[in-house]
Design a protein around this nucleic acid. Structure first.
Lengths: 318, 318
DNA sequence: TATCCTTACGGAATTCGTAAGCATG
DNA sequence: CATGCTTACGAATTCCGTAAGGATA
C-alpha cells in the first residue's frame, strides 16, 4: 500500500471514474493509474471499482466501505505535513480563502485588514466563486477556508460554522414610487421588475421562498453575482434591487448617491453566513486566527471540535 | 512519504529510540531504518528525534507534535486493510483476545461458548497475561480485545469499557477459626497469613487499599496470578485466601469441597472488569459481536462511539 | 470510429543490504 | 571496547512511461 495508489483511487472517484482524466490530474500516465488501482485492489483483496467491460463505472460495495478510509489516510498525510509546516515555516505561510463576491466585497475587508496587521508574514490569497466552487476549492485543497451564505455543509466532508446573520434590503432610485405610499409589501414589490442575485447565491433562496409562499411570481429581469452590478442596473432604472443589507450599509462612495435602500428584514427570511473548513483537516495556526478575527466566537477550540465531530460518511463498516 | 518511513518512526519511539532494535522488529537492516527516518525528516523539514552525537535519545518538540499523526496514519492503514477483510474473508477470520487469568478462567468461558456457536468460522486465540502485557498486546496488534479488572485505559490509545462489577470472597479450609465467632472483619482477617493475587492483578489494589486504610499490615505469604493456585495453597493450610467471588461461585468440581467461601463485599471495594480496545482501531465485525456476547450492553455502536472519542494525545497542534 | 482501459516491454530510478567509518558511554 | 548511528557502494528490484491491444458506446 502506498500513497500514490490511494491518490489514484480518490481521484478516480472524484473524476467520475475516468482514469485518463485522473492521470492528467496526477501528472502521470494513464496505464500507471490503472496499475496503481489494480495493485491496491490486489493487496486489499477487494474490487473497489465496478468494471463494465474495460470501463470503470462506479464503486462496488467494498469500494464504498473502503473509500472513506482512503480519504482519511490522504487527509491525515496532509495534516502531518501541515503539522510540520508549523515548525518549519513558523508564522510564515499562505492562507487561501474562498468566498462569494458579497463576502469578499463587504464582509471580509475589515477581517483581512486586522489579520494582515497581526500576521504580516502570511500571504493571503482570496478566491472568488459560487458556493459550489468554494466547496470544490476546499475539497481539492485550493482553499483552506470557505465563506458563503449558502449551505456549504451539504457535503459530509466539510463543516460549516455560522458566523453572523443578515437580512436583505431593497434598493431603488430615489424617486421610485415604492418609496411613497407607506410600507413596502411583497405584493407591491412583485409589481416591479426585480434585479437580484444569481440562483444559489447570497440568500437568493430566501427571496424566492418568500415570493413563492406569498403566491407571487415577480419578473426577475436580471441576476448577477455581485451587489455592485445589481446597483448599477437599478440606477439605470432597469428594476428594483434586492440585495444584502450589508452592501448598502457602508459608506462606499463608489456607488452613486441616487440610490435609496429600504430595510426588508420583515419580508425575507434571515440568512446566515458561515465559514467552512475541511472536516478532519488540520489548518495552520494562523488560519484559526483568521477565523477568529472574522467571527470572534469561533475560537480555535470551537472550530477544531466541530472538525473532529464525525460526519455522515465517516469511515465506518457496512 | 511512505509507510515504511512512518513505521520506522513509530517503532523507534516504541523501542526507546534504539534503531538496531527497530530494524529487527521491522525485519530490515539498521542503516535502512536510519535512512527511512532521515528521509521523512527531510521531507517534512523537521527533526523528529533528538540526536546526541550519533545516538537518538528522544523526541523533539516537532517530533511530539508529529507523532500522533504518524500513529493515526498507520492505524488507519490497518483499518483500511481490516475493512477489506470483512469482504474478502466474510465471516471467517481470527479473533485474538487477551485476558488475565481470572477472566479467562471464570468470566470468559460462557461467552466463548456462545460465540463459537454463532461464529463457527472464527478462529479464537486466547492470550493470557498481566494487565500491562495485555495493554502491550493490544497496542502491537497481537490482541484485538483485552479483558482485565485493572485500569487498562491508562494509555490514551486504548479505550476501556466497563463490563461488570464484582467483589471479593474469603476462602478458608472448612474448620478454620475465622468461620466461627461472628462476622469477619479486616482486623480478624489481618491476624492470619494471606494468600491472594499478584500486585496489579484482579482487584489486588482494592485489597491493599482496604487494609491500608484500616491501618493494618497483614502478612501476605503468597501471591499468585490465578485463583486456582491460591485455592490450592489455602487448602494446604498456608493461609487465608482472598479472591474474586466469581472464582468460588461456580460449580467447578475441580476444586476440593473442603474449602469454604465467605462473601467479603463489605470489606473490600467493588471492582470493575472492563474490555479494552484500540482507540480509533477498526475491528472485524465478529469482534464487536464477541464483546456484545460478553457484555450485552456493549453493542457495536457503543463500542465504536467510545473508540471514536478523542483521547488525551490526539493529533493536535502545539 | 472514437474513447478508454489493459497488457507488454524496456530503461531509469529507487530501494535495500553489506561493509566500513566514527562517535559515545 | 562495545554499542549504535552514519556513510558509501553495488546489486536487485521496483517503478513508470511508451507503445500496442482490445472492448464498448
Amino acid at each position: 500500500m502506498n500513497f500514490q495508489q490511494l491518490r489514484s483511487v480518490r481521484e478516480a472517484v472524484r473524476r467520475g471514474f475516468n482514469l485518463t482524466e485522473v492521470a492528467q490530474a496526477l501528472h502521470t500516465s494513464q496505464p500507471g493509474v490503472s496499475r496503481q488501482i489494480r495493485e491496491l485492489e490486489d493487496e486489499l483483496g477487494v474490487e473497489i471499482f465496478v468494471r463494465v467491460g474495460k470501463r470503470l463505472t462506479g464503486l462496488t460495495q467494498p469500494g464504498t466501505a473502503v473509500l472513506p478510509w482512503v480519504e482519511r489516510l490522504l487527509q491525515d498525510a496532509e495534516n502531518l505535513q501541515r503539522a510540520s509546516e508549523e515548525f518549519t515555516h513558523g508564522s510564515r505561510g499562505v492562507l487561501s480563502i474562498a468566498a462569494t463576491h458579497s463576502q469578499a466585497r463587504y464582509a471580509l475587508p475589515t477581517a483581512v485588514r486586522d489579520f494582515r496587521a497581526t500576521h504580516p508574514n502570511v500571504q493571503l490569497r482570496l478566491h472568488q466563486g459560487s458556493p459550489e466552487q468554494i466547496a470544490q476549492m476546499l475539497l481539492t485543497g485550493t482553499a483552506d477556508i470557505g465563506i458563503a451564505s449558502h449551505r456549504l455543509a451539504e457535503r459530509h466532508d466539510l463543516v460549516a460554522l455560522p458566523c453572523y446573520r443578515w437580512t436583505h434590503s431593497i434598493v431603488v432610485p430615489e424617486s421610485h414610487p415604492l418609496l411613497a405610499d407607506g410600507p413596502i409589501t411583497l405584493e407591491r414589490l412583485a409589481q416591479y421588475p426585480i434585479i437580484t442575485y444569481d440562483q444559489g447565491l447570497t440568500g437568493r433562496s430566501s427571496i424566492d421562498e418568500a415570493f413563492g409562499r406569498a403566491g407571487l411570481r415577480p419578473e426577475i429581469v436580471l441576476t448577477a453575482m455581485d451587489a455592485d452590478v445589481i446597483k448599477t442596473y437599478v440606477e439605470l432604472g432597469l428594476g428594483v434591487g434586492i440585495l444584502a443589507s450589508i452592501a448598502m450599509e457602508d459608506d462606499h462612495p463608489a456607488h452613486p448617491a441616487k440610490l435609496r435602500a429600504v430595510d426588508a428584514r420583515n419580508l425575507f427570511a434571515i440568512n446566515t453566513t458561515s465559514v467552512a473548513v475541511r472536516r478532519g483537516g488540520l489548518l495552520r495556526g494562523f488560519a484559526y486566527d483568521f477565523i477568529h478575527t472574522f467571527a470572534s466566537h469561533l475560537t480555535r477550540e470551537v472550530v477544531e471540535s466541530a472538525q473532529a465531530a464525525p460526519g455522515d460518511a465517516e469511515p465506518a463498516p457496512l
